[in-house]
Design a protein around this nucleic acid. Structure first.
Lengths: 137, 137
DNA sequence: AATCAATACGTTATAGCATAACGCTGCTGC
DNA sequence: GCAGCAGCGTTATGCTATAACGTATTGATT
C-alpha cells in the first residue's frame, strides 16, 4: 500500500522530476536536497526547484512544512482538499503523517466567526515521536 | 489594556533588550529586524539576538512563528502555558492574535492516543485577514 | 500561418535566516 | 580557590529563498 502516489500527466519536466523525488523520499526534503538529487537530471539552480515546488504546492500535490523549511509529497492521492491538514513529524525517523480533522477545522471556524477573522490558510505541525520510534527506544 | 506585558527581573541584558523590542513592536520581528533595532544599544551580531530569543522562547516569554521566520512577545502575561497555542496572523496589517483552544488540544490528544504518537510541541498558524483589515478593504 | 498572451525555463546575482566554533567573563556552590 | 555553568562577543560559514534578466514553448485567436 506504500507509494500509492498519483503522478498527473500534465506536469512539466521539472515539476515531474521534483514530484518524483518527493514521492520516493522517506522523509521531507529541502529544496536544496531536491536540487542535489536532481543534478544528474540536469537541474542546476535553486530556482528551478522552487518554481516547480510552488506549482506543486499550489495544486496540492506537495505540502510545505513550515517548521522544517522542507517539502513532502501529498500522501492522499485524492487530495484536492482545500481545508486544514495537520502534519505529525517524528523527530526520531523524520517520517511525516498527514491527517485531517473536521472537529478542529470546525472549531477554527467558530473562532474565526466570533473574531471576524477571515481564514485563508492554516498550518498545523506537530512535533514528537512516532509509535515505532517510541518502541525502539 | 495594551502593552500589559510582564518583564521578568532575572533576564540578562541582551534578553531584556530583545524582549523589550518585541513588546513594543506592533507586529512580528525577524531576528535581523531586532538586531537592527538594537545596534544603538551595542548589539552587533545575529547570534546575540538568536541566543536571547532561544532563552525567551524556552521560557514562553516569546514565540516563534514558523511560517514567518519571525518572533513575537507572548501576549498572555501569565503564559506559562505548556499546551497548544494558535496564532492568527493578518496578512493585511501583520498583527498577530494568540489564542488557546482546549477542544483542539483535546482533539489532538485523541489523535495521538489512537496512533501512538507522542506529541512534544505543536505549532498552529492561521493566515488570513483580521476584522479591521476586512472592514478597511 | 502570423500574432499575441501566458507560462515555463535557465542563469547570475543577491537577499534573508541561522548556526558552528573559538575563547573570554562572571557567577555559584563546594 | 576553583570547578562548573551560563552567558557573552566575534568571525566565519552554511542554509533558505527570491530578484531580475532574457529566452523558449505553448495555446488560443485571428
Amino acid at each position: 500500500m506504500a507509494h500509492d502516489h498519483v503522478m498527473p500527466t500534465d506536469l512539466t519536466r521539472n515539476q515531474e522530476l521534483v514530484l518524483g523525488t518527493l514521492n520516493h523520499a522517506p522523509a521531507p526534503l529541502s529544496a536544496y536536497d531536491i536540487l542535489d538529487l536532481l543534478r544528474s537530471e540536469g537541474l542546476r539552480a535553486p530556482l528551478q526547484v522552487y518554481r516547480a515546488l510552488d506549482k506543486l504546492v499550489e495544486r496540492g500535490l506537495a505540502h510545505r512544512l513550515e517548521s522544517l523549511n522542507a517539502f513532502v509529497a501529498c500522501a492522499d492521492e485524492h487530495c484536492h482538499r482545500k481545508g486544514l491538514i495537520a502534519f505529525a513529524i517524528c523527530e526520531g525517523c523524520g517520517k511525516v503523517d498527514e491527517f485531517a480533522d473536521a472537529v478542529i477545522e470546525e472549531r477554527l471556524g467558530t473562532w474565526a466567526g466570533t473574531t471576524g477573522f477571515k481564514v485563508e490558510r492554516t498550518t498545523m505541525e506537530i512535533r514528537g515521536k512516532c509509535a515505532e520510534c517510541l518502541k525502539a527506544a
